[in-house]
Design a protein around this nucleic acid. Structure first.
Lengths: 149, 149
DNA sequence: TAAGACCTTCGAGTGCACTCCAGGCAAGCG
DNA sequence: CGCTTGCCTGGAGTGCACTCGAAGGTCTTA
């Protein structure tokens, strides 16, 4: 259970509410709470990382069971999915924490949140352009090696 | 001289062979050797990083002056430019070192080099797709904030 | 009721990619 | 000649994003 799991193997295991890939968002609302290991299966993050996100203020407060265990809800998983998206844009965790703070502060921060997202959007566009550039270079080199082989 | 410099300020300074952005590759072949600070101006890397790249085997041997100072040539700067491209694909430095080793080993490694570049190419395509995905999410959220503001 | 899986906390450790420092040499200049 | 600037080396330090360990509580199944 380190990183990869055969996501479509058995469809009724204890942590399989969320792991089948065919429907991209298979989180049912019937029982809107998941253990940390179910959240792990959903998000691809480790339990350590999920707890760490909470410690540093990147999670908007996760419910607990009567015995103190974390119970993730659909909105938490949605948030984590969004965080994952931000993560692969290269955004530093500190900036994501900042955004999470703005969310906690309520509607008065809509403007600032929008600015943050728009600046991120610009970064993403830049990054895409750079990658296209890189792609061109790679194709040239690959063509060279293909010709020389 | 930490990171940014007004690249188009004076066009005849001691390290300005390479810093004007308008032509993308303004490296003249007239005097095909540059000091480390000129290489810094060209590549955007720091001198520390350039020396470190050499230590770890990421550079294909840089010439020295009679007093032991590094003299970068155009092919070195081309290589660094390529490395920079690989870097922003997210390729680990260890993999780039591996590629550099293959280059040092000569033509017999063309096949392996091509494989490495093709696998990198696939990664880049994946990354671009992910970024487009992220862009869609950002646009949705930005639209929401724009409507709510 | 007992085993074993799973959860909790806090703090320390890891890996990567730089980044910096101390101490020293060499060249150009007033 | 001394001063400044630029470069050299090896090794230590930094920041980020996890990642792990230890010690212990809880839940489930036999």
């Amino acid at each position: 259970m380190t990183q990869t799991m055969p996501a479509g193997a058995t469809a009724a295991g204890p942590a399989d509410r969320c792991s089948a890939p065919p429907p991209p968002h298979p989180r049912p609302d019937g029982q809107d709470h998941y253990t940390i290991s179910e959240a792990v299966a959903c998000t691809g993050l480790t339990a350590h990382t999920l707890r760490w996100y909470e410690r540093i203020g990147l999670m908007p407060h996760v419910d607990r069971s009567h015995t103190g265990q974390r119970r993730y809800r659909n909105r938490d998983l949605d948030w984590l999915e969004f965080v994952n998206k931000l993560r692969l844009t290269g955004m530093p965790v500190a900036d994501m924490v900042r955004y999470a703070e703005l969310v906690r502060e309520g509607e008065s921060t809509y403007g600032e949140r929008r600015e943050l997202l728009e600046s991120t959007r610009r970064d993403v566009l830049t990054r895409i352009a750079e990658l296209h550039d890189t792609l061109a270079v790679l194709d040239r080199k690959i063509g060279f090696y293909a010709a020389g082989a």
